[in-house]
Amino acid sequence: MINLGAAVLFWCSAWTLNVVLARSKLHGHRLVRLLVPTLFGISVLVLWEGLVTSLDISPIILPSPMDIAERLVAETATLWEDFVQTVLKGALSGYLIGATAAFVTAILIDRSMFLTRGLLPIGNFVAALPIVGIAPILVNWFGFDWQSKAAVVVVMVFFPILVNTVQGLKEASVMQQDLMRTYAAGYWQTLLKLRLPAAMPFVFNGLKIATTLALIGAIVAEYFGSPTRGMGFRISTGVGSLSIDLVWAEIAVAALTGSAFYGLVALIERSVTFWHPSQRSEK
C-alpha cells in the first residue's frame, strides 16, 4: 500500500508541476514542450509500477515495468533476431517496394484524367478496407518466410500512398503550371521542378500513415505461419506459454520501432518540405 500511496503522490506532484509549467511564461519553449509529456509518461509508468507491486498482481496477468525492463536487457539477442526478421526483412522491404510501386503508379495514372477519376474513388475505398485480412492468402502464396510478410506490407501501404500522391500531384495551381509553360518547360521538367515538390507534403502524409500499417501487416502475417523467429511469432507463442514479460518486452520493442520509424519519416519530411507552412510555424 505504501508503494501505491507513493505512486499516487508522485502522479499528483508531476501533474501539478505540469500545470505550473504549462501556465508559466516558458510554455512555448522547446525544452518545456518536451519535458511536460515526458513527465506525464513517467508518472504513468510509476503509477503502473505502484499498482502492480502494492496490489500484488501476478506477473502472469500484468508484469511491472521494472520486470519488463529486466527482460529487455536479458533477452537482447532474441529480441534483436525478431527485430531483424520482422522489421528489417518483412516490414521495411515491403514498405520500400510498396511505396515505390505506389509512387510510380501515381505518376503514370496522373497522365490520364480518365484514369485518375476512375482510380481515386476506388483507391480511397480500398484504403478504408480491412486489408490485413488478406494475410492468410498471401502467406499461402509466398510461403512462411519474410517474403509473404513483405507482400502483405506491400498491399497494405500501396493504396494510402497512391491516393495521397495522386492528390498531391493536383496541388500545383494552373497559374504555376502556366508559368512553367512560358518558360518552355516540358512535361518532365514541370513534373520534377514544380509538381513533385508541390506534392511532397501529401506524399509524406501517405508515407507516415503507411509506417504504422507496415508494422501491423508484418506482425499480423506472422500469426498465420512464420519461421520460429519474428515479433508476431514470439508474441503469439509467448501468450500461449505464459512468458508474458517477454511478450511485453516484445511490445515495447514494437512500440519503440513504430515511433522511431514514424519519427524518421517525419524528420525526412521536415528536410524535404521545409518550405511548407506546417513546417515553419515554431520559430
Binding site: N18, L21, A22, H27, V32, R33, V36, P37, L39, F40, G41, V132, T211, T212, L215, I216, I219, V220, Y223, M231, G232, I235, E250, I251, A254, A255, G258, S259, F261, Y262
Partner: peptide, 17 residues
Amino acid sequence: MSLMPWAIISQTIPIVA
C-alpha cells in the same frame, strides 16, 4: 501539452502486438 504527444505516439504503436 501532456496528452497530445502521447495520443500521436499511441498511433505509431502497432496495435496488433
